[in-house]
């Protein structure tokens, strides 16, 4: 019953041991200032990499969130087909999917999916 959890535990031990082994095997004592700085083609990094990122990526994530919630609502639909009234099931699922499709086309029409302005 718990064998999957124990297997996950074993797997995470294996991967951590591999990583720790690499850290131990590759221990070098020579440290250098340039070696520890972020990679920037030989220069010191000019701009901070903790910059506020592009709004595009944020918008994509928002749309993804909406669609993922709707997928989570579709997920149990197939399991309840054997215990529900077929007529009601059909109406519910088809209306739901059609709302999804129309919502996607509406977003497309409003220019939400355009990557560059």
């Amino acid at each position: 019953m718990f064998s999957i959890s124990i297997m996950m535990f074993i797997l995470i031990i294996i991967t951590s041991v591999v990583m720790a082994l690499a850290s131990i095997l590759s221990k070098k004592s020579l440290t250098d200032r340039e070696k520890c700085s972020p990679f920037e083609c030989g220069f010191d990094p000019k701009s901070s990499s903790r910059l506020p990122f592009s709004l595009r990526f944020f918008l994509i994530t928002i749309i993804f969130l909406i669609f993922d919630v709707e997928i989570a609502l579709i997920l149990p639909m197939i399991l309840i087909i054997s215990i529900s009234n077929i007529f009601m099931w059909t109406i519910t699922s088809i209306v739901f999917i059609i709302i999804l499709i129309i919502g996607l086309y509406h977003e497309w029409n409003q220019g939400m999916l355009n990557w560059s302005n």
């Binding site: 972020p38 990679f39 701009s47 993804f64 997928i71």
Partner: peptide, 28 residues
């Protein structure tokens, strides 16, 4: 905390997220 790594990570997240929606729908 490197510029290249941050850009690569952002791109990977947006790409994987976008394709995950249609992947889940096709699996469904």
């Amino acid at each position: 905390n490197s510029n290249y790594a941050l850009l690569g990570g952002l791109r990977a997240v947006a790409q994987t997220i976008s394709y995950e929606v249609s992947m889940a729908l096709i699996l469904l």
